[in-house]
Simulated scan of single mutants.
Amino acid sequence: MLYAAALAGAACLTPYVLRLIKSSNRPLKVSPAVAAAAGFAQNAVLFALVVFVGLLAAHAVGLGAPYVAALSGGAAPARPFASAMTMGAARGAAAGLFLTGADLVLLPRMPKLLELARRSTLLENFSASFYGGINEELLTRLLGVSGVVWLIGLASHSKPAPAPTPEWAVWTAIVVMAVLFGLGHLPATKAVAGKITGLILLRALALNGPVAILCGWLFWRYGIEAAIAAHFTADIVYHVGGTALLQANDRRRFMSWFPPPASVH
């Protein structure tokens, strides 16, 4: 079930990938369609490993996907599914508002990233939000956090067990993966901006770090499903809502500190 969701998320990323390819400064030896298809095939292989190894690591340290497990015949989680999803989505929406507010300050100082945001469509951003919510959470939380916790247990010479997991080990894993999650956005940013400046690095960590910590905590306490709900909702508010706000401002100019589109100069 998780792998099927990952494949769907990878397919939903295709429109946004095509946009990035067309916006990149790097010459391509193949057509954008072939490059996008190759990216999907790469994701199909990658997430087969991510889901398989991630579930093994999560089970070893008492984490995992409790609602998917319940559908597969496991015990019912303590918190009802609707309650967990609502809680995750509410926190994700708040995180999305934080991201939008931060970028309203930062993007005017990053002209190339601002122009990319202007060129992306609401449909592209909505579709890509499924990849962010599903695939990035499976990679960084199910595999990443679980794997780091398992490695900490291995390094401390304590045999990993389903329960209990030391809180310090989980928090260490959450913070480590939050930093890596922020840094993981830099290659795509560099392809658009041409180089990584101090401000771009700060933006990657300041925007992605807090959201990653929130999703890590949700994964720990309520399962990967709650983390996915939070990440997806944050992306919808930030990428879809933020883009709609930017497009509205370009038409009506109610945020005076934002530079106008290049075609207006």
Rank of each mutant, 00 (worst) to 15 (best):
W171K: 05
L123G: 03
F130I: 13
L122D: 12
P108F: 03
A128R: 11
N135Y: 07
V149R: 01
P111W: 13
E136F: 15
G101F: 10
E136W: 15
A161E: 14
W171S: 04
M110V: 05
L180T: 11
W171N: 06
K112Y: 15
A102Y: 10
G92N: 04
P160T: 08
A155V: 09
E137I: 07
L142N: 08
W150K: 02
S156M: 07
I174G: 00
S158R: 12
A173E: 01
L139Q: 11
T165W: 05
K112P: 15
N135T: 06
L138E: 07
L154Q: 07
H157M: 06
N135M: 04
I152A: 01
G144S: 03
P166V: 02
W150V: 06
N125S: 01
A163L: 05
A90T: 11
A82H: 14
A84M: 13
V105P: 15
S127H: 09
S158C: 10
S127F: 14
K159G: 09
L122F: 11
A78S: 13
T121P: 12
V176F: 11
L114C: 03
V176W: 09
V105C: 11
R119S: 15
V145P: 08
G96M: 02
G133I: 07
G92P: 08
L97G: 09
P77K: 02
V148M: 02
I174P: 10
G144A: 04
F98Q: 04
S83C: 04
W171F: 13
A117C: 07
M177K: 00
A78T: 13
A173K: 01
P108M: 02
A90H: 04
E136P: 12
R118M: 04
A95I: 07
P166Y: 04
G88S: 06
Y131T: 13
M85L: 15
Y131S: 05
A90I: 09
A78L: 12
S129W: 14
G147P: 09
V179E: 01
A90M: 05
G101K: 08
G96K: 03
T121C: 02
T172C: 01
L139R: 11
A82Q: 10
A155I: 07
T121A: 00
L114M: 10
L180C: 09
S83Q: 09
I134D: 03
A173T: 06
P164W: 10
E115K: 03
A169H: 03
P108R: 00
V179L: 04
F126N: 01
P111A: 00
V179K: 03
D103A: 07
A178D: 06
A90N: 01
S127K: 05
A94R: 06
I174E: 05
L123A: 12
G132I: 12
L99D: 08
A178E: 06
I152M: 00
R141D: 01
V179S: 01
V176T: 13
S156N: 10
V148K: 02
Y131N: 13
F81W: 15
T86S: 03
R91C: 15
S158K: 13
V170P: 08
L180Q: 08
R109Y: 06
A163R: 09
L139S: 09
T140W: 14
P108E: 02
P111G: 02
S120N: 08
P166H: 03
L99S: 10
L122R: 13
L123Q: 08
M85A: 09
A155Q: 07
M177H: 04
N125L: 02
L97Y: 08
N135P: 08
S127G: 10
